[in-house]
């Protein structure tokens, strides 16, 4: 509970607007739902597809999750934040789906990541020093496409667990502990996977120049 009192201004603002959205959803506001949907649906589709393994099943799972969100909004208590609550519902739906299909689901580190081991000499020094990157903006055209498209492609190519951690931590701004709870893994594992995901993306961007 001490955490609650330490919320900074941004978070308080976010909680307030969240409470408002929840109130509106309970009153059946279509606008509130549309706003929530726009905010999360693309991410949810990516996460669900990552877990269930096909786009069609990912869409169904996300659809089911939205229905569950609407059906249960009266029971949302605001302890963990709306985004967290939605992603827990989504990952639970996705897990049941995978289990129903008789497969196993695991968010443990699945990285085979080549890492950077080969970049160092025996004494842990760079063999070739990384160079200074010039400013890279999403709209910059590199190798014929927007940098944003290259990044999106690289994210899609990540192992599923790393991709999910990156989406939840970096794109949705959830904490390590929230992300660990959603993926039912340890915070340490979340940190490892996030680091590997960043290394892989960096490597991808490095190759573009």
């Amino acid at each position: 509970m001490a955490n609650r009192r330490r919320l900074d201004g941004d978070q308080q603002e976010q909680r307030r607007s969240e409470a408002q959205i929840v109130r509106q959803l309970r009153a059946g506001s279509k606008e509130a739902f549309t706003q929530l949907y726009r905010q999360h649906n693309t991410t949810m589709l990516r996460i669900a597809t990552g877990i269930v393994g096909s786009e069609a099943a990912g869409e169904e799972t996300t659809h089911d999750a939205w229905i569950a969100v609407l059906n249960n909004i009266d029971r949302f208590e605001g302890r963990s934040g709306l985004a967290h609550w939605i992603y827990v519902i989504l990952t639970n739906k996705a897990r049941s789906r995978v289990e129903r299909d008789g497969r196993a689901v695991s968010f443990e580190d699945d990285g085979t990541g080549e890492g950077l081991a080969a970049a160092f000499d025996g004494r842990g020094r760079w063999k070739a020093m990384p160079e200074l990157w010039e400013e890279r903006t999403p709209e910059r055209i590199v190798a014929g496409r927007r940098l944003a498209d290259h990044v999106a492609e690289a994210i899609d190519a990540l192992p599923p667990a790393q991709r999910m951690v990156l989406i939840l931590r970096v794109q949705q701004g959830l904490s390590s502990s929230d992300t660990a709870a959603i993926l039912e893994t340890s915070e340490a594992n979340v940190r490892v996977m996030l680091h590997r995901a960043r290394l892989a993306l960096r490597q991808h961007l490095e190759r573009l120049t």
């Binding site: 999403p138 999106a152 794109q171 993306l201």
Partner: peptide, 29 residues
């Protein structure tokens, strides 16, 4: 160490690009 300082800069940029990429509403959506 210039190499490491460049590396950390690269990783920050990578992270920022990944974050921007998620904030952008998807075309289809």
């Amino acid at each position: 160490c210039r190499g490491c300082s460049h590396f950390v800069g690269q990783l920050r940029q990578t992270n920022q690009l990944a974050a921007d990429c998620g904030a952008r509403p998807d075309e289809q959506e």
